[in-house]
Design a protein around this nucleic acid. Sequence first.
DNA 1: GTCTATACGGAGATAGAC
DNA 2: GTCTATCTCCGTATAGAC
Lengths: 225, 225
Amino acid sequence: MGAQTLPDDVLDAYGIPVLPDPASATARKRQAIIDAALAEFLAEGYAAASMDAITQRSGVSKATVYKHFGSKERLFLAVIGGVLVRTYAGVAPGASGLAEAPEPRAALVRLAGDWARTLLRPDIMALRRLVIGEIDRFPQLGQLWYRLTYDMYNGPLIEAVTALDARGTLDVPDPELAVQQLVAATVGVPQLVHTFAPATEVDEEALDRQVASGVDLFLARYARA
Amino acid sequence: MGAQTLPDDVLDAYGIPVLPDPASATARKRQAIIDAALAEFLAEGYAAASMDAITQRSGVSKATVYKHFGSKERLFLAVIGGVLVRTYAGVAPGASGLAEAPEPRAALVRLAGDWARTLLRPDIMALRRLVIGEIDRFPQLGQLWYRLTYDMYNGPLIEAVTALDARGTLDVPDPELAVQQLVAATVGVPQLVHTFAPATEVDEEALDRQVASGVDLFLARYARA
DNA sequence: GTCTATACGGAGATAGAC
DNA sequence: GTCTATCTCCGTATAGAC
């Protein structure tokens, strides 16, 4: 039933022993633990997740898991924290070009749409639910999540909105609040539904309509007349 | 250390035995279990909550808990589901008078402010985090939460907005979406922060500003010119 | 570093007296 | 209905050989 441990040295087609770099062998095991732990934590939550299950999923022994990570708590922080950073690093739509876009409305719609499609991915929604549910036990993860979304999305958007204000395209007295409203009115609307009804499929047509309408809401208030 | 069981029959000042209604005695124990379970689940989450701890907090025996609720799972559903219903029933700011309010903006600001102050209560935020974190295990609670907020808030608001549209005060092509945007732009903004940073105190001044600005956002788009 | 085997406690749930 | 005492299993974590 359980995954078998593969031998670290095998013979190639010519009978030459293939000796893997020992360092990379332990690195592979470490990665296997991380993958297994992530799957287990996402499926069961922190408390119900079992170190035995993580051990079996990863194909290493329990002692190895503890040699690498010390405790369940530290394993959780390492895995979830790492996933948060890697997930957001690999996503990055970036609001960079926004301030120079010829058509601000189209650029905002595309940007918010990309962001919404990312955040609504089932794996990211599941991760978000896990982090929210464990925030009282692991406040660091809540801070990390919030800072990452802020650094990656709100921050650049605030700069872009400020630039558009200075150029006279927009009239935004409080850029930070305005960006929070824009995000809430676009991404926040479908996200709320999918937070409480995870099984619901993302309706692309409805999503486009919600995002576009949210951007129009924003522009109706903040576009210079 | 643990709470002691109080005798069900005591003597009053005249030596007359005070015989409590036996039915209400078991009802009181049932209530004690519910209170203890709620506290334990909120503090520890579902999986980490211990039936032993609930037993000790409530002052009854573990067997009694199981006689009443059968299993940990059913206890959780009964307690959290009950709290959701009771919480929302006891809150109900109600959007009833909105359609007839002389000044729609002031009425909307007051309504959204009341709603925000309710949802930002630490106990309700903690309950919300718990429900979100356990949604993969207990989808019923997610549905219940969403339906209750909808029936109590979004639904009446949609009716009010539709009425204001018919009367010519507002121009709202999609009332459901517009109400979702209004809620997101007002309540949703501070709620997002407090979801990921539970320790943060509610800043009344900032809250008033956020709510008022969200209403203005809504009206800038949907008020008839 | 990695394994097998095990220590040790606490979990959910129940039996049987009253 | 309520209690005390207990069953059984699974949890995290570690000791000691290789």
